[in-house]
Amino acid sequence: MDIEFTPSIPGSGFPRAPQSLWRYRAALPLDPAVTPVTLGEGMTPMEEWKSPAGRRVWVKMDHVQPTGSFKDRGAAVMISRLRALEIPAVVEDSSGNAGAAVAAYCARGGLACTVYVPASAPAAKIAQIRAYGARVKDIDGPREAAAAAVKKAARTTYYAGHCVDPFFIQGTKTVAYEVAEQLGWRSPRIVVAPLGNGTLVLGLIRGFSELVSVGLITEMPRIVAFQSRACNPLVRAFVSHDTDLFVPGTTLADGIAVARPVLGDRILTEIRRAKGEIRDVSEAAIQAAWKQWAVKGLSVEPTAAVALAGIDQLKVDNDAVVVATGHGLKRPH
């Protein structure tokens, strides 16, 4: 499911306030009467760092969002719409970060929330979901088992599925808007991100494509998405053009441990159309990046470390942006 929508860009550009993703309100497909459900998400810092291998890279620090992950962007836009529709309660399935984001924004907006999670999800993430007042349903088995379990509940309660609700990706596309604005309204040469169910990568493609279409930037960056080699269905499908290669795998990067992504076909199509690429990194490289970046001062969870490991694999230096997707407190060393 997607939304056919052309953003409206003010002739004078976007307003300087608020200092949140809602500065791009004109680029979001929400009725002007909708009051945002917000925790101040967006406009996260973007700082230049040197990778462990000494390569210069911009880090888009979305791990400092209100709930500690980029998924606050999608949840803010999605829950704003649902509250406007007077939806009283939602169900969601998540490996942790999306569940925490949806739970927090439901709490802020006054919606009841139940999140179905794999029983193997990190304890810190499950505790965070519960802290926002949401009910948690622990489901034995892989990530896909939680997705299957929520279907029954969705017969009677609105399913706020971050992988299927198109307003979620409308929120995540604002990462691209911010990166371009923070670079003086131009695109970087390369943008690197982790890839599981694809809500960030699809948002990046959507956002940069819109900015090109309205003339705010002149060209698309090369978008490179990384998976763990231990669970890399989209890497193998990208290379072979065969989506039947999806098989379960176990990885330290629990946020992208998705054997059969719901949006798999769309992800492959859009990355190819954008002339992007899907790669993988080893578990050893993820572990090393997770620790090496922490001692440099950047504490992220292993899923974010997948993209950080990818930077040194690409051997890029200068004019590259890597998105730090989740905070290290979600899965301490």
Rank of each mutant, 00 (worst) to 15 (best):
Y158L: 09
Y158C: 07
A160G: 03
G161A: 12
H162Q: 14
H162K: 08
V164I: 08
D165L: 11
D165T: 13
F167I: 08
F167G: 09
F168N: 11
I169G: 05
I169V: 15
T172Y: 07
E178F: 01
V179D: 00
V179I: 15
A180W: 00
Q182V: 00
L183V: 01
L183C: 02
L183T: 00
G184F: 01
G184N: 01
W185P: 00
R186C: 00
S187M: 03
S187W: 00
P188T: 00
I190L: 02
I190V: 14
I190C: 01
V191Q: 01
V192R: 05
L195Q: 05
G196W: 13
N197E: 14
N197G: 15
N197W: 06
L200Y: 13
L202E: 13
L202S: 15
G203H: 09
L204K: 02
I205A: 02
R206Y: 00
R206Q: 10
R206E: 05
G207K: 03
G207S: 04
F208K: 03
S209H: 07
L211W: 05
S213N: 14
G215A: 02
L216V: 03
I217P: 01
I217V: 15
I217M: 02
E219S: 09
M220D: 04
M220V: 04
M220A: 06
P221V: 07
P221T: 06
R222Y: 00
R222C: 04
R222H: 11
I223P: 02
I223Q: 03
V224N: 05
A225L: 03
A225M: 03
Q227R: 09
R229Y: 00
N232Q: 12
N232A: 14
P233F: 05
R236L: 13
F238T: 07
S240N: 06
S240H: 04
D242S: 05
L245D: 03
L245P: 02
F246E: 14
P248K: 05
G249V: 07
T251V: 08
L252C: 10
D254H: 14
G255R: 11
V258G: 13
V258W: 14
V258R: 14
V262C: 10
L263P: 07
R266M: 12
L268W: 11
L268K: 11
T269K: 15
I271S: 07
R273A: 15
R273L: 13
E277C: 08
E277H: 06
I278Q: 06
I278W: 04
R279L: 15
R279E: 13
D280W: 05
V281T: 08
S282K: 08
E283N: 07
A285Y: 01
Q287H: 10
A288F: 10
W290Y: 12
W290T: 05
K291S: 14
W293G: 10
A294E: 13
A294H: 13
G297A: 11
L298W: 12
S299T: 14
V300Q: 07
A304Y: 09
A304F: 10
